[in-house]
Design a protein around this nucleic acid. Structure first.
Lengths: 196, 196
DNA sequence: GTCTATACAAAGATAGAC
DNA sequence: GTCTATCTTTGTATAGAC
């Protein structure tokens, strides 16, 4: 096995290590940090038990940190690619981007980084991994808003508000079992941005 | 021991059962559902191991559900007591109420109900317990806004937005280790409500 | 690098004496 | 109602053959 393709020194998707991280991303968003077990990850990735400490000498903490990084980078990419010629349009596009994410959360598959934040316990490295991801989202979204013509300070505050709503809505919608809390909040959010 | 005072058929605070629920509220907000152990609860409440299934035949799930209910009721009380003669003032008071909560979250002690929502896994009873608590917060806050003169539909949307920001800010601030994400979002929130 | 087997600790859950 | 003791399962972590 082990189809390890190396391109420019970067290991491409498809390897065991890679599948393990993907499986961890999924297990985290579904069961949280303490609720995720190696058993789940091994079953979903097809890896053997011994593969864990071979690929991740730091054990569970390292695996989780890398999963948070991967998920964080992926979302950041989506945020940077947000369409919209003015701040209002970017907010509109943000709402559309978030809708399916929140829907997934309503059926049990929430935000991996939020799971790491809430479940980090007293592990500072984990907490910081989550903080870095969230920070990159807020900064990326703020930069996107500036690019669309917003004032830097206004963009920073608006981005922080939007990311907070994104995370809060996922928590609420998972508990509610539907996306209604998000739709209500989003309606107000748009009305509010439009009236500026 | 067992200073069980009964008043009108209701067991008052001070009993073993009661202390166990309090300890569970605390353990949940700190470590999440799967991260909370009976060992923690027993140590903090001073109860014996056998007391668990004596007081909570439903085991861990029942204990967690009751903790979510208690925390939910307590917060709902705070929201109902929010001062303010008009919607803008209520929002202002909300921000002040939330500030210390978010600060606690930044040091590791987040929202008990959020922990239950995120950590509920596939247990529908737990998910629903969290949903009920969140629903009561949103409804209570909306009612308070209506009382302060807001239109019912406007109040419903604004309340959903505020609760989402409350929960999202806790997740972000815990990861950041400080309250900056909340302060940024709150600044924008107030500016936005004021401009109506 | 991949796999099997296993050590060791901690979890939830019960039984039964007091 | 309270407590001690224990069963069973599950989880993390490691050792070592291939």
């Amino acid at each position: 096995m082990a189809v390890l393709v190396k391109v420019g020194g970067l290991r491409m998707a498809g390897g065991t290590r890679d599948r393990m991280i993907d499986a961890t991303v999924d297990a985290l968003r579904r069961n949280g940090v303490a609720g995720m077990s190696f058993t789940d990850v091994l079953r979903q990735s097809g890896a053997a038990r011994g593969a864990i400490y071979h690929h991740f000498p730091g054990g569970k903490a390292q695996l989780i940190a890398e999963a948070a990084e991967r998920f964080g980078a992926e979302v950041r990419g989506h945020l940077a690619a947000l369409p919209g010629g003015d701040p209002e349009a970017v907010v509109e596009a943000f709402v559309e981007l978030v809708r399916p994410v929140v829907a997934a959360s309503a059926t049990g598959s929430g935000c991996t980084v939020a799971a790491v934040s809430v479940g980090s316990g007293d592990d500072d490295a984990l907490r910081q991994a989550a903080g870095t991801a969230f920070g990159s989202w807020t900064d990326g979204l703020a930069a996107r808003l500036v690019m669309a013509g917003a004032e830097p300070e206004e963009a920073s505050g608006l981005a922080a508000l939007l990311i907070a709503v994104l995370e809060g809505a996922q928590v609420l919608c998972r508990a509610a079992g539907d996306t209604e809390p998000f739709e209500r909040a989003a309606r107000t959010l748009r009305a509010v941005v439009r009236s500026r």
